[in-house]
């Protein structure tokens, strides 16, 4: 297990979070962020389908959203 790399990633996350406290984008400055293509997942259904396809060919899963049930897509 690549624990060291994981720890460093988590440290980055906290650093980002504390840097984030300085960020104060006002609601009326969010025109750009509110655009559809700036959404984290512009097409949620497509992501679901895509993850279903690749997890039937690859051994990895998770990270995108909380994972629920599986399928026997072998």
């Amino acid at each position: 297990m690549n624990t060291r790399r994981l720890v460093s990633l988590i440290v980055i996350a906290f650093a980002l979070q504390s840097a984030g406290c300085a960020v104060n984008v006002k609601p009326w400055e969010r025109g750009t962020l509110a655009k559809e293509h700036m959404a984290i997942e512009p097409d949620a259904l497509e992501r679901t389908i895509f993850e279903q396809v690749v997890t039937s060919k690859e051994a990895s899963s998770g990270g995108y959203a909380v994972v629920g049930g599986g399928c026997g897509c072998n």
Binding site: K26, P27, W28, R30, G31, A34, K35, E36
Partner: peptide
């Protein structure tokens, strides 16, 4: 709304 139909977020 924004052209993509999304609402304005008002603080």
């Amino acid at each position: 709304p924004h052209p993509d139909g999304s609402p304005w977020k008002i603080g």
